[in-house]
Design a protein around this nucleic acid. Structure first.
Lengths: 147, 147
DNA sequence: TGTTAAATGGAAATTATTATCACTTGATAT
DNA sequence: ATATCAAGTGATAATAATTTCCATTTAACA
């Protein structure tokens, strides 16, 4: 929780530094993204905030996500089915392991990824700026039939 | 070229095995996907075929791609900007290196990926079925300012 | 050839996202 | 504190990509 507050503050600071206002709507969005519990979708965020902010517009959620993406403070996770979910807690690209049954997302630690990045740069002669690595499968709990 | 014919034949055979008809439109789509030069988009495919098949409908291209995806004969490459491109030549998941400037796509050889897959399965206790690995950057030719 | 289920073309429907615009408000200077 | 004003918001319209619908056509097989 302290972690999330800290993360919110970082995002707020970054926004101020870039001359953006902090509105209540924006702050509510930031708080959810700073936690990013379960990697929320735009709809998830919208619904959560609507509970105590009934006039919150979907457009505002979209606008703020675009802004935060452009500042590098949220990571967009685009899924093969076209849906998008967001991570404002760990906005740097990192691998995901996704359960295709219950949609749970786990962040594995893969030390070998940096090495691989170098390998790719060397082999292809590209300047690598960014990457995306997702594994899809079934989590142990779904495999046990608990899902 | 012989390669591409062979690949087309494989796809056609798979379709017949599953009780699908081979129409001229379908075959034209298959031929382009079997080659997958430059990883075509739906629009690319549609335009190429329109040249000598003016009534070809966009819906038909979409329908056939859905079908071929479901049979595991084309791989959909979904990009962060929401656009999709397709690979019917190498339909198994494989890493891509994408130039964000000229949109060129290179398929690097990464032997360590299998190893990583095992590592992830072990660490997360998931049964890994599928994956997606893309690197984004600038190719050497664009870096040299030729783009 | 005749039959029939599958495929097609064209248009309408759907979905996710972005743009528009009149109105409101947070941040700054006074 | 209050006035000012650029930035932000809400509601809705517009856009874009994809899917569905339906009447017509056609590939496959008897």
């Amino acid at each position: 929780m302290a972690d999330h507050n800290q993360r919110s503050d970082t995002i707020v600071r970054k926004l101020r530094e870039n001359g953006h206002k902090i509105t209540p709507q924006r702050l509510a969005i930031i708080k959810i993204l700073a936690k990013s519990e379960g990697h929320p979708s735009v709809e998830d965020i919208h619904e959560q905030i609507r509970a105590d902010f009934p006039t919150m517009s979907l457009a505002t959620v979209y606008r703020n996500i675009v802004l935060l993406k452009s500042l590098g403070e949220v990571l967009e996770l685009g899924f093969p089915d076209g849906s998008n979910r967001y991570d404002g807690n760990k906005p740097a690209p990192h691998p995901h392991v996704i359960c295709i049954r219950c949609k749970k997302i786990v962040d594995p630690v893969l030390d070998s990824l940096d090495e691989m990045k170098k390998e790719v740069a060397l082999e292809t002669d590209f300047k690598i700026l960014n990457h995306r690595l997702d594994f899809f499968g079934i989590c142990s709990s779904c495999m046990a039939g608990k899902g």
